[in-house]
C-alpha cells in the first residue's frame, strides 16, 4: 500500500517535470535556454519515472521473492545512469556546436565565450 502511494507520487512528479521540460522547449526564445529546459527537467523527470519502476520492482520482490523483479530494478538503474551521463554530455555538445556555427545567445546580457574566440 505504501509502495503504491510512493509509485503514484514518483510517477506524478516525473510526468510533471517532463511536461514542464516540453513546455520549456516550446516556449523559450533561443537554443541555449531550450537546452536548459530539455536537459535538466526531462532528465530529472525520467529519474523519478525510473525510481517508480525501481520501487515497484523492490516491492514485488519482497512480496513474491521472484528474482526477475530484482533484475528489472537493476537494469532500470543501469538505463538511468546511461541516460543521465549521456544527456549532460549531449547537451554540452549541442551548445558547443550551436556556438561554433555562429548562433549567438539571444537575448543575452553578456557573452564571454564570443569575446574569447574573437
Amino acid at each position: 500500500m505504501i509502495a503504491d502511494l510512493l509509485i503514484l507520487a514518483c510517477v506524478g512528479i516525473g510526468l510533471l517535470f517532463n511536461t514542464l521540460g516540453i513546455i520549456g522547449i516550446l516556449r523559450f526564445p533561443d537554443v541555449y535556454t531550450r537546452l536548459h529546459a530539455e536537459t535538466k527537467t526531462t532528465t530529472f523527470g525520467t529519474i523519478f519515472l525510473a525510481a517508480a519502476v525501481v520501487v515497484y520492482g523492490v516491492s514485488r520482490l519482497l512480496e513474491s521473492g521472484d528474482g526477475q523483479y530484482l533484475t528489472l530494478s537493476v537494469h532500470t538503474v543501469v538505463a538511468l545512469l546511461a541516460l543521465a551521463v549521456t544527456n549532460a554530455t549531449g547537451a554540452h555538445a549541442i551548445a558547443r556546436a550551436a556556438h561554433r556555427s555562429g548562433q549567438a545567445p539571444s537575448p543575452a546580457v553578456i557573452d564571454r565565450y564570443l569575446e574569447e574566440e574573437a
Partner: peptide, 30 residues
C-alpha cells in the same frame, strides 16, 4: 535552426527511453 531541432530530438529520445522502461513493467518483459 538545426540546433533547435537537435534539442527537440534529444527530448524525444529521453522520453522514449522513459516510455520503454514503463512498457517493460506493463508487458512484464525485462
Amino acid at each position: 535552426t538545426v540546433p533547435d531541432r537537435v534539442v527537440a530530438l534529444d527530448a524525444v529520445n529521453t522520453l522514449t527511453v522513459a516510455a520503454m522502461i514503463l512498457l517493460a513493467v506493463i508487458y512484464r518483459q525485462i
